[in-house]
C-alpha cells in the first residue's frame, strides 16, 4: 500500500467530517431563520437524512460492506421502523382527534 493510498483512506473520513460540520451550520441557520414552516421542515429533514447517510456509509463503513448485508440492514430498519410507526400511528391519530374535541 502506497503512502497516497493510506492518506486517501484517512482523507475520506475528514472530508466527510468537514461536510457534516457545514451541514450542521446550515441546519442551525435554517432552524433559527424566520422561514415558512412548509419550507423549513423539508429542508431540515433533507439535511438530517443527508447527515445520517454520510455517517452510515462513511463512519460506519456501510459502503465497504457486502451488498447483501447493506440491503438487509437498511431493509430491516425501514420495514421494522415502518411497522412500528404504523402501530403507533393509529393511537397517535386517535389521540390527535380527541385533542381537537
Amino acid at each position: 500500500m502506497t503512502k497516497n493510498d493510506e492518506n486517501g483512506g484517512y482523507r475520506r473520513y475528514w472530508t466527510s467530517w468537514i461536510f457534516l460540520l457545514c451541514l450542521n451550520l446550515v441546519m442551525v441557520i435554517i432552524g433559527s431563520a424566520s422561514l415558512s414552516r412548509n419550507l423549513q421542515t423539508p429542508l431540515l429533514l433533507l439535511g438530517m437524512l443527508l447527515m445520517a447517510w454520510i455517517i452510515a456509509f462513511r463512519f460506519m463503513a456501510l459502503a465497504d460492506e457486502n451488498v447483501g448485508l447493506t440491503v438487509t440492514i437498511i431493509g430491516c430498519t425501514l420495514f421494522a421502523g415502518g411497522t412500528l410507526f404504523l402501530l403507533i400511528a393509529f393511537d397517535g391519530v386517535r389521540t390527535f382527534a380527541l385533542s381537537l374535541h
Binding site: 457486502n66 448485508l69 440492514i73 430498519t77 421494522a80 412500528l84 403507533i88 400511528a89
Partner: peptide, 30 residues
C-alpha cells in the same frame, strides 16, 4: 454476508436499538 459473526451481531443490536429510538421519536411526534 462475508462478515464476522461479532460484526453481524453488532449490526443486529444496532437495528434493535435504532427501533427503540425510532419509537421514542414517533411518540414524541404524536
Amino acid at each position: 454476508f462475508k462478515t464476522s459473526w461479532q460484526k453481524l451481531m453488532m449490526w443486529l443490536f444496532i437495528i434493535g436499538d435504532a427501533l427503540l429510538f425510532a419509537g421514542f421519536l414517533a411518540i414524541y411526534g404524536f
